[in-house]
Amino acid sequence: MSDQNTAPQNEANSPGVTRRCLLASILTTYTASLIPWALAQSVDDRDQGAFLAVSAIIAGRQTLDTHLAKRLYDALVADDKNFPAMAQQLLTLINTRKIDPLHLQRVLDTEKSPLAGVPRAIAAAWFLGIVGSGAKARCVAYEIALNAVIVSDVLKPPTYAYGVYGSWIAKPL
């Protein structure tokens, strides 16, 4: 674990180099404290690692589906080839300034940061399963989008049967 996210940006792209690394290697003490469950998570490269780390911070979940993470990451990169660099920069910013997730968006908006769209894009990807906006928006996940998972003890995603006829008359919890 380093105090700064200062690893060379091109390391993961060098041919012949084993690129997998542990997420812990790109976190600081502060960010590691936000997502202690993820420290031993293995990622393909530092770009994906930054995405996964920021995802974990934004999502606030104890686990993230690694298969879905890959699909969301690929979709976000397909929309913006600079996304990996921006995710890296965002992680660096959180690492160095120890920004509370709850204040992250306000800080970026207030400072008119060029990174301000990154957390929202990541949040929409994980919470709604949707990547992109306007005519380019597309659904990557539905029933495993986190907003469905978070309420899954009470609700089913629309189009999924709640239960047998009348099962909804009972008090939910």
Binding site: G60, L104, P119, F127, L128
Partner: peptide, 24 residues
């Protein structure tokens, strides 16, 4: 279901981390 609408509202407000699940 209010889930999608509330999710959009929370994202618009920048509610992230543990707080998101609680608020949702």
């Amino acid at each position: 279901s209010r889930v999608d609408g509330a999710t959009n509202a929370l994202i618009a407000q920048g509610v992230y981390g543990d707080e998101f699940a609680r608020r949702l």
